[in-house]
């Protein structure tokens, strides 16, 4: 005896068929998201590769500059050639030697900032005297501007800003060597002393000659 004598199996079979279609729909909806996610992973990966390249190239550039500041003009093409060949248009390289990111903001806000910028000034002065105006700290900032693309999809078209990846590296200029610095300027001080002595001598002579005339010479009693 059947509980539902009029029940027919055919419509149910149709339901099963729909169930199969649903899976396809779910897949159709989910797959692009998954693909986007995979693109996102690649994208993030690219981002970090770019970040690392900027880090390493900034270090390369600043150390090179610190070795020989005369290379200032050569460092940028060098970085482009060694690290960003084919992507030169996306790279901006700044010479940030002697820019002090902390002093500007800290000098006004706290005592350690003041102290620090004060000591920096002294150190910078010492450096300037002995490097013939060379920088104290050499720095290179490399900025990579990437198009926001997820695989084939250009997100710029929907108003996403370009991505900037920037790294800076600072190092002190390599030591003053006799070739690059005019160390004998120090000896200029010595010569100034000698000249001063000559001058003092001349002044003394003038004083002796210009002495007051006495009224009358007399024998010592």
């Amino acid at each position: 005896m059947r509980l539902f004598p009029n029940f027919r199996i055919a419509p149910l079979k149709g339901l099963v068929k729909e169930s199969r279609g649903q899976s396809s729909v779910e897949f159709a909806v989910g797959a692009p998201v998954l693909i986007f996610m995979i693109f996102a992973i690649l994208y993030v990966n690219d981002f970090y590769i770019a970040k690392e390249k900027t880090l390493v190239s900034a270090r390369y550039g600043s150390w090179k500059l610190a070795r020989d500041a005369n290379l200032s003009g050569d460092v940028k093409p060098d970085i482009l050639q060694h690290y960003f060949e084919g992507a030169e248009g996306n790279i901006e390289i700044q010479d940030v030697s002697d820019t002090n990111p902390f002093n500007a903001e800290n000098a006004n806000t706290n005592i350690t900032g003041l102290l620090s910028s004060g000591v920096d000034s002294v150190v910078e002065f010492i450096n300037k005297v002995f490097t013939d105006g060379g920088h104290l700290r050499y720095g290179i900032r490399v900025t990579y501007s990437g198009q926001p693309k997820l695989g084939p999809f250009d997100l710029a078209k929907i108003g996403v800003d370009p991505i900037h990846v920037s790294s800076a590296h600072y190092v002190d200029g390599n030591s003053w060597d006799g070739d690059n610095t005019d160390v004998h300027e120090v000896m200029g001080l010595l010569w100034e002393t000698v000249k001063g002595a000559f001058q003092a001598l001349n002044d003394e002579d003038v004083n002796e000659e210009g002495g007051e005339a006495d009224l009358e010479d007399a024998e010592l009693p």
Partner: peptide, 17 residues
């Protein structure tokens, strides 16, 4: 019962991704 089967798989895969 294959209803919502893809959704589950996708959720798992998505979580993994």
């Amino acid at each position: 019962d294959r209803g919502g089967q893809a959704m589950i798989v996708i959720a798992i895969v998505m979580f993994t991704i």
